[in-house]
Nucleic acid binder design. Structure first.
Lengths: 144, 144
DNA sequence: TTGAAAATATTGAATATTCAAGAATTGAAG
DNA sequence: CTTCAATTCTTGAATATTCAATATTTTCAA
């Protein structure tokens, strides 16, 4: 298995990249109805618990590195979707919160995202989907 | 399943992005020993069948869009890893070939990549790995 | 208590990617 | 045969991402 000359399509890293690209493309397409990139939806979704989340926490959760997140948050602050508050307990930190406008948008985005998941369930099957999710979670766990 | 308020970590799109990021990061780390980005390894690997591949074909195979590929190929041509030949049968097309230097590099990269796959097999298990690959292939199929 | 090291976030320059437009060639309808 | 639309690749400008350096605050050892 995974011999030096095996075609690239047999490598796990490639299959993951390919599947991710395809599913992400579909999601992008849906979210573009609201003019929002996937990363911004992730940010809103994480913040929609109403709690403050530090930039570092957020960066981990939404799979962006710090400088990229900072700049994306700048845009979202301009759009009044989120706002910054300095953490009173550790003034190095900045806590991010979702605004009311952000909440409204997040609800719309959630429904677009759920549409996609349902579409996947239809064409790919209930069983395969949950099995795939399980395996992915366990791969992520075993990689830490 | 996939209710509007489910946490982002339950979305297939997110799990795929997370797994892909992690595995890709590991692969990057290995390939950086030769100073080569993952995409260049993919390009070399596809070309290493010795046949000419058009830019469009390549772009599909290595998951890059056309302008990005063109610029990456420019760099690889400078490094004499690959070279361009105009397709005599359809002069709109450019056929890409791997050079001898490219072949040598590709062999080294293959072995680094195989190291990674073996490392995954160890920590994640033989059975899970092949099952995950199967499911990913079938997800990709069902998305077309 | 002080001072050095670590943690956190941002900035600016360098780099890479994408979008829209362009150039060249082919295909195909009239 | 000619012309117009489609295909293929590249280019340049706009945009986004990353790397390295900076500023601020906290931690902790001496």
């Amino acid at each position: 298995m995974a011999k030096p000359n095996s075609p690239i399509t047999e490598h796990l890293a490639y299959l993951l990249a390919q599947a991710n690209r395809e599913i992400n493309r579909q999601l992008e397409l849906r979210l573009s109805k609201e003019g929002v990139p996937v990363e911004q939806w992730r940010i809103l979704k994480v913040l929609s618990d109403g709690n403050g989340h530090s930039m570092g926490e957020l960066a981990d959760a939404v799979l962006l590195n710090h400088p990229t997140l900072t700049k994306m948050i700048d845009r979202m602050v301009s759009d009044t979707l989120v706002y910054r508050v300095q953490d009173p307990n550790d003034r190095r930190k900045v806590l991010m919160f979702i605004s009311d406008r952000g909440k409204v948008l997040c609800r719309k985005l959630n429904s677009l995202a759920v549409d996609q998941e349902e579409h996947i369930l239809e064409s790919y099957g209930d069983k395969s989907t949950s099995e795939l999710k399980r395996l992915l979670e366990s791969l992520i766990d075993s990689s830490n």
